[in-house]
Amino acid sequence: MKITLIDYGMGNHLSVRNALSRLGYNSSVSQDPIVIKNSDFIILPGVGSFRRAMENLNGLGLSEAIIQAATENGIPMLGICLGMQLLGSESTEDGTSEGLHLIDNKISKLDSSSGIRIPHVGFNNVYWKTANALTDELNQNSDFYFTHSYAMTDSDKSADYIYCDYGAPFVAGFRKHNIFGVQFHPEKSQRTGLKLLKNFLEIKRA
């Protein structure tokens, strides 16, 4: 089984790879479009600003490879944190920039008008109305580790969502066909996080 973590110069791959090896999976890190398109599972991690991440993805010729892998090849794909946001349509972080448009949701700063502190850092519980493959055997209100200032909307109606409340509800995760995203860090979320990663790697390709 070929699990590829996409390297675009901005992710912390080590923690995700450590978590996968705890589950008994080998993974590799690549920025080669051919390797990416021939994977069984693709993980898009990421720490940093949306604009710089998209500049890197475009500059390395990876945006097209990711879109093809997800749409034409139907490879199960998981975006983590910034990686999830990159799957969206656009973000207002560091000026407005376009995302990969794999899900039709915009990304904007968390609303702090209720007095919440930003960034949103720490464990917070998540919930869902419609279960999806990622939430299999997970309890509603499980705690996951978050660290972010921006979040995605849920305007794309063709997806199932996981939510979290911080000031107001925001998208903590989604599934749209074979494309998945989580705003939290499953690789930093104890056994619950490992279970979620395992759920992702057990998805059967359509």
Partner: peptide
Amino acid sequence: VSRYGSQC
């Protein structure tokens, strides 16, 4: 901050 984000 600009490169890695405030949360970093």
